[in-house]
Amino acid sequence: MTKDKVFRTLLLGSALLIVLVCEAVFYSLTSGALPAFRSFGFFRFIGSSQWGVVDGSEHYGALPFIMGTLLTSFVALLLCIPFSLPVAFFVGEYYRNTKLASWVGGVVDLLAGIPSIVYGLWGFYAVRPFIVRIGLSQQGFGILTASVVLAIMIIPYAASLSAEFIRMVPQELKEGAYSLGATRAEVLRRIILPSSASGLVSSYILAIGRALGETMAVTMLIGNTNNLPLSLSDTGNTMASVIANQFGEADGFKLSSLIAIGLVLFLITAAINFVGHLIIKRNTL
């Protein structure tokens, strides 16, 4: 065999390895989750909101955590859009190619580098007292507190992704619109927004994907209770935070149930990321 052939084999081998790793991840999660699914049933596991020993028998259901995850991520997204979209317009349109924009871009990069625990801590010292002050809850922990901090965490990510798409709108189109007498606001609404819409949607889908799996900051703020959260002031747990909280001392069915929650989270984030990337590809190829 020539050296080139060896090299090519290595290339193929490493690509195969990626497939293998993914399969192994999926297999490990599934086999770890199997005892839980087998004893409770997949749909009862997902649909039940009991967690722990009830009447002397163990019963685990993931509904409160699925709900907690969806609720926090969704509220975080709602809070994130009105701030990240203006930032994206600021960086990608109004001040694009200026020093100011690249400066803002640098800060955004930096913020992505702050460990999530610091956001959690800041939420603990700054956001929680505020929630208490407005009388939403006594301790200040809960869905809303976690969502606010999550929103702050995903703003830089969502903003820099969507700014990229806004920047990509061709200058000819904008000039075409200006030449017809449009103001910048009208160009923004009628040309830039429709042209970058799918990119923007995918940015926010990917941002949600981030929020779903966020662990540390949420764990510190959500209150870590096993109940089904029904309002913003309720405490609860997300899938990620319940794993972080209870994995350490879990065994048996409980351990299997936590792995099962991990599997569900894995599938949800995979689906969300898949959709996000799909939309991007559709529109850039």
Binding site: I18, V19, V21, C22, V25, S28, L29, G32, L206, G209, L212, G213, E214, T215, A240, I243, A244, F247, L258, I259, G262, L265, F266, T269, A270, I272, N273, F274, H277
Partner: peptide
């Protein structure tokens, strides 16, 4: 596609793995 999947996987799941 699998690479993208892996990239989007939350770190807590990698922790379980």
């Amino acid at each position: 596609f699998l690479t993208e999947l892996l990239q989007g996987t939350p770190s807590i799941i990698i922790g379980i793995i």
